[in-house]
């Protein structure tokens, strides 16, 4: 596993969402890259995300999951745009109603601890309604 993957995934395991930051031009990157996508420098560091963002789109997977995800159905997924200007695919926690009916495009969301259960140790960022 490459260092950028290791650092990002161990951040998630520690409850931190890490964003790559170019030490040359300050460009922020997520997902992490091997060189800066703006200036192509390879002197790259990390900053911790505030965890605040908006939901660009979302879905609830109810059937035909990938192998190994059968025990997690149904589950929420969404594209989250972080206030730092980067974005990522994330798992969404059920809302207060126990499902995902309160989610909407452009809703405010926040980085969260995973819902306890099968798959809660996967290297994926979880978000909840803010």
């Amino acid at each position: 596993m490459s260092d950028i993957v290791k650092t990002f995934q161990s951040g998630l395991a520690d409850g931190k969402l890490l964003i790559q930051s170019c030490n040359a031009c300050k460009n922020k990157m997520l997902y992490p890259r091997h060189r800066c996508t703006k200036c192509h420098a390879n002197d790259l560091g990390w900053v911790e995300a505030s965890g605040k963002g908006t939901l660009h789109s979302y879905t609830v997977v109810r059937a035909i999951p990938p192998a190994g995800f059968e025990g997690e159905l149904p589950y929420g997924l969404g594209i989250v745009k972080l206030e730092e200007g980067v974005q990522l695919m994330a798992r969404l926690k059920p809302g207060a109603s126990g499902d995902w009916s309160q989610y909407a495009c452009d809703a405010a969301v926040a980085f969260a601890r995973p819902s306890p259960g099968p798959g809660d140790d996967r290297a994926v960022a979880w978000f909840k309604l803010a």
């Binding site: 879905t59 997977v61 990938p66």
Partner: peptide, 25 residues
């Protein structure tokens, strides 16, 4: 991407659904 998105449980139907949801909104 196996490093960043496969751990989320995304599927091809989910990819179509994410586009559809945004388009409908």
């Amino acid at each position: 991407p196996k490093e960043w998105e496969q751990p989320s449980g995304i599927t091809f139907n989910a990819i179509g659904a994410l586009i559809t949801q945004r388009y409908m909104a």
